[in-house]
Computed example of a mutant assay.
Amino acid sequence: MISRRELLKDASFLLAAAGAAQPVLSWAATQYDVPTIPGKDGMILRSFRFLDVEMPMEFLNSWITPVPHFFVRNHMHEPSTVDAAEWRLSVTGEVEKPFTLSLADLGKVESHTVINTLECAGNGRAFQHPSVPGIQWQRGAVGTARFSGPRLRDLLQRAGVKTAGKHVMFRGLDEVPGKVPPFIRSIPIQKAMDTDTLVATQMNGAPLEKHHGFPARALVPGWIGAASCKWLTEIKILDKEFDGNFMKPGYRFPNQPVAPGGSVNPDDAHPVTGLNVKSVIASPADDSKAKRGVVPIRGAAWAGEADIAKVDVSTDAGATWSPARLAADHAKYAWRLWSYSWEAAKSGEYTILSRAADTQGRSQPETAAWNPSGYLYNAIDQVKIHVEA
C-alpha cells in the first residue's frame, strides 16, 4: 500500500477546498489527506517538495487570472521569511555606478503595468510521448495577470551599463537545499532594455504574494516563466550569458529535430525564450458528458510576443474546422479567450479540437516537437466528450 509520505513525494494532488462556499470540482478527490496550501484552495498540487501548483481548467474562466488560481512553479524552497524592511535589491556587474535599493526606494521609481500571460516552459509535459521526466503539468501551468513595477531599463540606465554588458542575470532568495545548484538565470541586454520588462512589485493591483515572488520579481513578458525570477535580490550585468545549471543544460531546446526518446547535447541546443502559439480547451472537460443541443466550447489562446490571429475548432476529430469567436479583451503578451457554440445534433462520442494561429504565421501543429525536457508543448488541444440524448 502506498504511504501518505510516498504520495506527497511522488504524486499529483488536489488541494483541499476550504468552506462550504467552494464549488464541487469535477476532478475533486477526497480519499487522501491532502495538505492545504494557504491561498490556493481547489488547485492541483503537482509537487510538495518545492511547491508546484497547477490551475484546473475549470478555473480558466476570466481574462485576468485571480491570484488564488494562478499557478505556482518553484525550483527550490521558497524563502522561509522575507522582511520587507530588510530586503535589498542590488544592481552590479558591468555598470559604471552600482547601487542598492530598499523596497521603499524601489517604490519611488516610476511604475509601469504590463498584462502578461505567464506560462511554465514545461506546461503540457504530461502529454509528451514518449514521456519525459519533470513536473507532469497538463494544461494549467499558465495564467494572465496585471504586473506592475519599475521598468528594468530605468534601473539599468541609472547604473550606466558598460559596453561590455551583454546579459542581465537575476538571482532570487530561493533557499537552496544541499548541493542543488542555485536557480540563477540571465536574459539578453536587448530584452532587459525593453520598455515592458519589469521589476514587478504588484500583481493584479496588490503587492505580490509570497508564492509569486514578494517583494519583487523580474517580469520578462512573452517569455517562459523561468525568465521571470522571483524574490529578486540581485541584478548583475554580465559580459555573456550566465554559465549555470539553469541556463545550460537546463532550459535549452534542440537546434535540430530530435527523434522521440533521443538525447541532445546541450552544446547543440539554444536557450528557451519566447512562448509558442498555443490554445487550450477549458470547457467542456475531457471525458465529460453533455446533452444534445447547443454545447458551449471555450478556452484560451496565446502566442508569447505575437498576437493571436484566429482560433479554429473542430467537433469531428479534425475532419472539418470552424472559426471560434475571440473575446474583446486584448493586450500585447496576453492570451485571448475564445468561444464556439456547437449544435450537437446526435448522441455519441466526439473529439473536440482547438487550433490557434498567430500574427507571425505560426500555427499549432498536430504533434508538438518532442524534446528530452518536454519544453514548449503546443500540439492541437483535444478533449473527448459523450453526447447523450
Rank of each mutant, 00 (worst) to 15 (best):
S186L: 09
C120Y: 06
F127E: 08
V295Y: 00
G274H: 11
K108A: 14
D33L: 12
A331M: 06
D316L: 08
N265E: 14
H167D: 12
V383N: 00
E96V: 13
I308F: 04
R362L: 11
F48G: 07
R217T: 10
A11R: 11
V264W: 08
M57G: 03
W87H: 10
V264R: 08
G19I: 02
Y375V: 04
I281A: 05
N255V: 15
C229P: 07
E209R: 10
R153Q: 13
V53W: 03
A319G: 05
G39R: 00
L51R: 11
M76I: 06
A303R: 00
T30M: 12
H167Y: 15
T30Y: 15
V280H: 01
T195C: 14
R5G: 03
P271H: 07
G293M: 04
L275T: 08
A331F: 07
P260S: 04
E110F: 11
V114F: 09
T195L: 09
A216C: 14
A300F: 03
L89C: 03
F246L: 07
A84S: 11
L173A: 15
S47F: 10
V387G: 05
S373G: 13
V311K: 01
A389Q: 15
P68I: 06
F127P: 06
T197V: 13
K230N: 06
R46F: 11
H69E: 14
I380W: 00
T367S: 07
K278V: 00
N265Y: 11
V82G: 07
V72E: 03
Y350H: 09
A357Q: 06
A29W: 14
G42S: 09
G124L: 04
T36R: 09
L89I: 07
P181Q: 04
P35R: 03
W370K: 05
A300N: 00
H77S: 00
M55H: 02
G222H: 09
S283N: 12
A20M: 03
P56Q: 00
Y377H: 11
A28K: 09
F13S: 03
S186P: 08
P188S: 02
V168Q: 01
I44A: 13
G205Q: 11
I37N: 02
V176M: 12
K162C: 12
G160Q: 07
F242D: 05
E234G: 04
S288P: 12
S3Q: 07
T233G: 14
P133A: 02
S354H: 02
E94M: 04
